[in-house]
């Protein structure tokens, strides 16, 4: 898993709970990296689960809530640092479609070792789009939060229906509908 996911996660934890919390979850988790992350490095994704579960235990906030919260933070980070990907899409649906077909293609060019989830999209009509999330990491909640955040970036209010296709959460279907307003 790319280092940026860890650095931004710890950033969010520090911003929200202070560096003590960062120090605490690092210390409580059995981490091969000893909690030393740089955004350009690559680390075992299991460390992320350890960190998130440690945080959940400590704060008593459910993991999925934490992941959604982190997704909102990450969404802002992406929007701030990789705005070009947002700017080339005319609207939210176009942007969502471009994740698999364009953004991930570009990411792969830079980081050939990156292990990315897949997002198959299928436009149902003008106001509805279907996204199938597939990943062995089973982090569809992170995806959920990122979709929500991009809706705010494009100022297009939406409603998201999430449905597990595989029970373990490795394949998940999102039905995203525009909401007039």
């Amino acid at each position: 898993m790319k280092g940026v996911v860890f650095t931004e996660f710890l950033e969010m934890v520090e911003d929200t709970f202070g560096y003590e919390m960062v120090d605490e979850i690092i210390s409580n988790s059995d981490l091969e990296s000893n909690g030393v992350y740089t955004s350009i490095g690559t680390y075992d994704h299991k460390e992320m689960f350890s960190l998130v579960s440690s945080l959940s235990k400590k704060t008593e906030i459910p993991v999925h809530t934490l992941l959604k919260k982190y997704a909102h933070h990450l969404g802002d980070f992406f929007h701030g640092n990789y705005n070009a990907f947002y700017a080339r899409a005319a609207n939210l649906f176009e942007f969502l479609e471009s994740i698999e077909n364009f953004i991930h293609v570009e990411v792969k060019k830079l980081y050939p070792d990156a292990e990315l989830p897949t997002f198959e999209t299928r436009k149902i009509d003008h106001d509805n789009i279907e996204m199938i999330y597939k990943s062995t990491r089973k982090m569809s909640d992170l995806a959920y939060g990122l979709i929500e955040k991009s809706s705010t970036h494009f100022k297009e209010p939406i409603e998201i229906k999430k449905e597990n296709i595989e029970e373990d959460g490795s394949v998940v279907r999102f039905l995203i509908s525009r909401v007039d307003g």
Partner: peptide, 23 residues
């Protein structure tokens, strides 16, 4: 706490420098 933090940051910097040099 600060010492641990500085230590982590230092290590992270070195890690990053190493990666960058390799790159």
């Amino acid at each position: 706490l600060l010492e641990r933090r500085v230590e982590r940051e230092k290590k992270a910097r070195k890690q990053a420098e190493k990666i960058l040099e390799e790159k």
